Computed example of a mutant assay.
Amino acid sequence: MLGLKQVHHIAIIASDYQLSKHFYCDILGFTLEAEAYREARDSWKGDLALNGQYVIELFSFPFPPARPSRPEACGLRHLAFSVDDLDRAVEHLEKHGVNCEEIRIDPFTDKRFTFFADPDGLPLELYQQ
């Protein structure tokens, strides 16, 4: 048996590192645990945590290609975050200029959810527990 335990981290490449760092830390509430500039690659790397747990490696690279997402592209579809109060979370995002799709109800779980995007258009989901 392979012995996987959990997802260790998610790597995201941003077209504008500072803008994405602001979005993930100041709007979504991640904390910057460590940050390094890698001169040989002209690349920033930030380690972001959510509630004390390391979750995202945020990278920048010169001239990354755009990620096709609409219509749905093959590969990672979206990242989903759980929240206790979806209405309050949507209000917070919209107060910071982040547009959310209309709230929907999962027909299998009867739970409420919505989608929004990071500064590069990466689809993100809020799912009410």
Rank of each mutant, 00 (worst) to 15 (best):
E102T: 12
F63G: 11
Y54D: 02
L122K: 09
S82T: 15
I105D: 00
L76N: 13
L86K: 02
P71N: 15
R104I: 06
H96C: 01
E101K: 09
R70E: 11
S69I: 11
L79E: 12
D118Q: 08
E102S: 06
P65A: 14
I56M: 02
F81A: 09
F115G: 00
L50W: 07
D110K: 05
H92D: 00
L93I: 04
E72H: 14
N51H: 11
A49V: 08
C74N: 13
F108C: 10
T109M: 02
Y54C: 02
I105C: 08
A80F: 15
R88E: 01
L79M: 12
L76M: 15
G75R: 14
F116G: 00
L122N: 06
L122I: 09
R67D: 07
G75I: 11
L93K: 00
D120Y: 05
K95R: 08
R112M: 06
P62G: 12
D84I: 15
S69H: 15
D120H: 06
P65N: 14
P65H: 13
P119E: 02
P71W: 14
D118R: 10
C100G: 07
T114I: 04
Y54W: 09
L86G: 05
H78F: 12
P123C: 03
E102L: 09
A117R: 08
E101S: 08
P107V: 05
A66F: 14
F81W: 15
Y54K: 04
R67Q: 13
V90E: 00
F61R: 12
L122M: 12
F108E: 07
A49C: 08
A66T: 13
G75Y: 13
E101L: 06
E91F: 03
V98G: 01
D84F: 12
V90D: 00
S69N: 13
F81C: 10
L124A: 03
C74D: 12
E102M: 09
P107C: 05
A49L: 08
L124F: 07
P119V: 05
F81E: 10
A66N: 14
V83A: 01
T114G: 02
E94C: 03
P107D: 06
V55Y: 02
E101Q: 06
S60V: 04
H96I: 00
A73V: 13
L122H: 11
L76K: 14
V83H: 03
A80P: 15
P62V: 14
F63H: 13
G97W: 01
F61E: 08
N99F: 00
H96D: 00
A89Q: 11
G121H: 08
F63M: 14
F108W: 01
T114L: 07
F81R: 12
I103P: 03
F81G: 04
I105K: 09
P71I: 12
L58W: 01
L122E: 04
S60I: 07
N99Q: 04
P62N: 13
L50K: 06
L79S: 11
S82W: 14
S82Y: 15
L124V: 07
F115V: 00
K111C: 04
K111L: 07
A89C: 10
F116I: 04
D87C: 03
L86N: 04
D118I: 09
